[in-house]
Structures are given as C-alpha cells and as structure tokens.
Design a protein around this nucleic acid. Structure first.
Lengths: 237, 237
DNA sequence: ATTCTAATTATTGGATCCATTATGCAGTTT
DNA sequence: AAACTGCATAATGGATCCAATAATTAGAAT
C-alpha cells in the first residue's frame, strides 16, 4: 500500500539523483508511464511532487524536465542548510539530548574522524560511508531539536546536495582532492555543533554567536583554530 | 489554464486559512469533489499538495484532516522564518539592493511606523494592513537575497503564521492587546533588518551577530534599546 | 449480554476515456 | 523564396470507471 503508494515518486527520484536521468532531460507523462509500466495518474502525481521538491521544472505545454541546478543554487541550498542546522543545534542544546542521542553523536564523530584523518587518499567507498555518517549526525541533531518546522523547511531542498554530488562526480580527480578538504572542514563543523550542544546549555545568545562563527567558518572558508578555541573554551569554562 | 490549473488548491487553502475549514476537520475526496463541483482527480492532487505544505495530514485509510497546529509548532515555524530571513538579510546586504527595493523598504518602514505608533487601539483593519506591509517587507528582502533555496525552504511553512493568526482570532480582546505589543516588536525587527542591509555591507560576521541579537530580541522577548543602539552604532561608524 | 465473525459499505489508488489546447508541419499565396 | 494560415497531431487536465482494502455494523453464537 504505502510501498506502491509513492512507488513512482521513489523510482523517479532515484533515477534523477543517480544521474540516470540527466539534468535537462524532458519527461512527458505518457512515455514515462509506459516506461515504468503504470498508468498516467501516478506519474502525474509524481511529477507534481518532484516539482515541489525542486527536482523537476514544469514546461508550459511540454511536460517537465529534470532541473538543472547551478552551482550558485547549490551554494544557496548549503547556506540554508547551514542556518537551519545551526538553529537545530541551538534548540537541541536548549531541550537537551537523550543519553542515546549523545552516545550516537559521539560515536559518529569518532567514525568520521577515523575516516577523515586516517587515509591519505579518498576512496569512493569512504566517501559513501562519510555521507552516511554525515546524514546520521545531522538527522540526530534535527531530531533532538524537536522542531518539525526545521524538517519541513529542509524537505524542499534536502536532495539538492546529493544532486550536486552526482553533478560534481564528473571529474573524479578533482572530486577526490576537493572532497578531502571538504570532509575535513565538515568534520570540524560537526565538532563545533557537538560542542555547542554539549557545552553551552541554554545560553542562547552565546550559542548563536558561536553558531555564526561556526557557520561562516564552514561556508565562507576553511575552519580556523580560533573559532574552535572559543567553542572549546566555552565548553569547559 | 494556470488558473484552473491549481484552482482547487487555491480554494481549499483559502478555506483552511480563513478558518472556514476548522482544524481537525476531516476531508474525504468524494464529498470535497462534489462540494467544489469538480471530479476526484484534481482534489486528490490538491490534497497531496496541501499535505506537502503542512496544511493537511493524511489519515491511513480515512482521507485527510485539516492539521491542528500547536502553539509550539507555530513558535517553531516562527523561529525557522527568523533564521531564514536573517540569512536573507545578510545575503541581501552582500548582493546589494536596487534603488527601487531600497525605496520600497523605506516606504514600508514609514507606513508601518505610522500604523504602529499612531493609534492607541488596534483595529482589525489596521492589523490587516500591517500584515500586508509585513509581507511586502519580507518579500523584498528575500527577493534581494537572490537565493531561491530560501524561498523553497519557506514554502512549506509560510502559511503557518497565518493559520496561527486565525487560530488566535478566537479571543479578539486578547488579540488586540497582544498584537499591539507584537506589532511594535515586529516593527523594531524591521528596522533592525533594514539597518543590517543598509549599513553593514558585506561584513558578514558582524551582521550575523547583530542578526542573532535581532532574532533573539524578537523571539525571546521584547526588543530592548541596547540592541538597537549597537545596530545604529554600526550603521554610522 | 458480550464477543467474534462475516458481510457490506465507504474510501482510496490506479487505469482509461474525453475534451481542450498548443505546437508543428505543410501547403498555398504573395 | 518566404511568410502566413490552417489542419493535424500530441500532450495535458479533468472525469469516470474498476479494483483492492479497511472499517464499521449487524447478526449469531457462546
């Protein structure tokens, strides 16, 4: 029931994110329906859902096409993720973590460190693994924030980073190099969030300032030690 | 075409937000379709769209119901709006405003001040007018940010504040009293955002700190003069 | 009287059918 | 030869039809 419910949506989304349906591909109802072996009705519903997710754009009388995401769009989505996850970290700090959540975060940090710091080369498998860890880390923070509006706000653009990943995958060499730097900065970002949640309790204003530093350090350049020092200093006053 | 395209969505959304369809009301496809004089197909599509917007929730085998939004959910949505609009203000500052946008913001600030500062009592008409001004103000900031991801993130919960307004409308006396305080704080909030965009240019970190103050002043309590002083001081260094 | 089972009804999901409309191609005219 | 007009085709949006399924009610049995 719920499997066949959104089966078409899941299939199409997977095809788009995997790159099997390249950006710019035109999609009409009838061929798509025939291709998937279903009728037009679920395809129409799926097209509208994927349009709302930002994965498809509607062409006036010519169906839909797989949306071309520019790098600036991806950067915009990343910044949105940044502030929303910063908010989530603050609210998680205010509301407190369950012991299980705290242990999970700590474990994920360790796993991430092992991946980032150990290998000198970045294998595709390691990247895949890091993506998993990253997603789990942020999911826990967002869950701990207990604010459904954050999840709702992310739902629209949560797939864009993955679309970007498949877009960047065209140049594997550059990818491996960049991703190493990215993964390191990102791991630092994780530590900052964790420090915020663990150390600062409900001191909301201070948290927000650290979050500002953390976010900007992450987005606008590589992390610097200064910010980490501030965070750690606040963590153990 | 595009009018009859999402006609059902528009109608249902309006009925929900106006309170004509109260929270908790169950909606089935067939009665709704008959009620609106259309077939089940557009109703089904509309139900799914409104579910994605967070206005309806799906009941397993019993149709949909108008979502009951708790006050904590509304507060969560307001906080999300807060950080996203803060991000928008920063990006608007970085990218700069067009002259027309700047004039519009200034005009809206003046109009808002006139509404908020003049009357001692808050009439329903004035509130309506203030809502309009408020929406225009934020729309311009978001437009100036030139980041589609912000709009996308807001699209899911942008109607919740209005839902809250109709929810709060049950007690008009309390409403009028509270809304006066709210409108004042909110107008201050506007001034802060405007100061950020006008005065701080691309000094992102400073902006973010002021934004933190602005946001927390707005959300967690009445605005205080101290924050405004900081902002104004930064505006004219 | 209460509980369990069976049947009916209500309700959604998918498929097909019809109408409307825009686009594209071809033919004709200037 | 180029441009305009008309016709045909394709494609979406809406309506109706069919199937699957869960929930509710009624009846029977303990």
């Amino acid at each position: 029931m719920s499997r066949s419910n959104n089966h078409v949506v899941l299939t199409l989304r997977q095809k788009i994110l995997s790159g099997e349906l390249a950006a710019g591909t035109r999609l009409a109802e009838i061929p798509t329906a025939e291709n998937l072996g279903v009728s037009r009705t679920p395809v129409r519903i799926a097209f509208r859902a994927l349009e709302q997710e930002g994965l498809l754009t509607k062409l006036p009388r010519r169906g839909y096409e797989v949306r071309t995401v520019s790098t600036s769009e991806i950067e915009g989505a990343v910044e949105v993720r940044g502030v929303l996850e910063g908010l989530a970290a603050r609210q998680a700090a205010e509301r407190g973590l369950t012991e299980h959540q705290r242990q999970m975060l700590q474990s994920l940090l360790d796993q991430g460190d092992a991946l980032v710091l150990n290998g000198t080369t970045v294998t595709e498998a390691a990247l895949e693994q890091y993506q998993q860890i990253n997603k789990q880390f942020h999911d826990i923070i967002i869950e701990a924030a207990q604010n459904p509006a954050i999840q709702a706000a992310l739902s629209r653009s949560e797939h864009l980073p993955f679309a970007s990943a498949s877009a960047l995958a065209f140049d594997p060499n550059n990818m491996a190099h960049e991703s190493k730097r990215f993964a390191f900065a990102h791991q630092q970002h994780h530590h900052v969030f964790y420090a915020i949640i663990q150390g600062l309790g409900t001191r909301a204003e201070g948290i927000m300032r650290e979050h500002a530093n953390a976010t900007f350090g992450f987005i606008h350049g590589p992390r610097n030690e200064h910010n980490l020092t501030i965070i750690n200093g606040s963590e153990n006053p």
